[in-house]
């Protein structure tokens, strides 16, 4: 029984070493991309948040919580900000 347990523990240890070490045996030349990728992800998150803000303002307007004039002003401002974000995304992509 003890020998069996020892074998299982060794097998587990071997599996863990193999599984955890697997990425280290692959190529790893990605450091240069990291900064660009981080900025891209940040812009994507900002864009999604901006879109959500536009939709929320729209729903607030349709349910009577924002007047026509206020909604138009806010919507225009938000869309302009969204356009700017898209420009930055494209600049980064290119």
């Amino acid at each position: 029984m003890d020998a069996l347990v020892a074998l299982i523990v060794l097998a587990l240890l071997g599996f863990v070493v193999w599984f955890v070490g697997m990425p280290l045996r692959r190529s790893h030349a990605e450091a240069a991309e990291a900064a660009t990728l981080a900025e891209f992800e940040e812009l994507e998150a900002e864009k999604e948040a901006k879109y959500r803000e536009i939709r929320d303002a729209d729903l607030d307007h349709r349910t009577g919580k924002l007047s026509d004039a206020d909604w138009r002003a806010i919507d225009r401002e938000l869309r302009a900000e969204a356009v700017e974000l898209l420009r930055r995304v494209d600049r980064l992509s290119s």
Binding site: F19, V20, G21, M22, P23, L24, R26, S27, H28, E30, A31, A34
Partner: peptide, 10 residues
């Protein structure tokens, strides 16, 4: 190092 990060995740 992405590979080391992946190893940490694993």
């Amino acid at each position: 190092r992405r590979d080391v990060a992946n190893s940490a995740r694993r």
